[in-house]
Amino acid sequence: MKLSVVLNEGPYQHQAADTAYNFTRAALAKGHEIFRVFFYHDGVNNGTRLTTPPQDDRDIVNRWSQLAEEHDLDLVVCIAAAQRRGIVDEDEQKRHGKDANNIAKGFRISGLGQLIEAGIQSDRVVVFGD
């Protein structure tokens, strides 16, 4: 089955970021297709490569990047929510004249339309949040 996941909370702050990951991994292991993981609200903070968690803790951002690489996942960070919170890719950096970008590997920034499209294209959408 084709599933999409929506994550509305940032890493470390709320367990939703972990539950969404564990769910996605389990769905992939069971042979389901993950059409898209969409990061919204503070969930966009899962897409910064500048986090430095302590060594004895999980690396939430890297974990997504790795899963994306292994399964060719589409990790989409909402552009409007990202702009507010300072998640920036190269295009956004140029467009808004910022001095840096911070998007993590495997993530891309795109519009809210990607969330609606995920709803249209997927058999099920599961939301994780606060």
């Binding site: 609200h41 929510a81 809210l112 339309g113 609606i116």
Partner: peptide
């Protein structure tokens, strides 16, 4: 932000 989703979704 929920309202923003509704507004974008309306175009679909």
């Amino acid at each position: 932000e929920s309202l923003e989703v509704v507004l974008v979704g309306a175009a679909f």
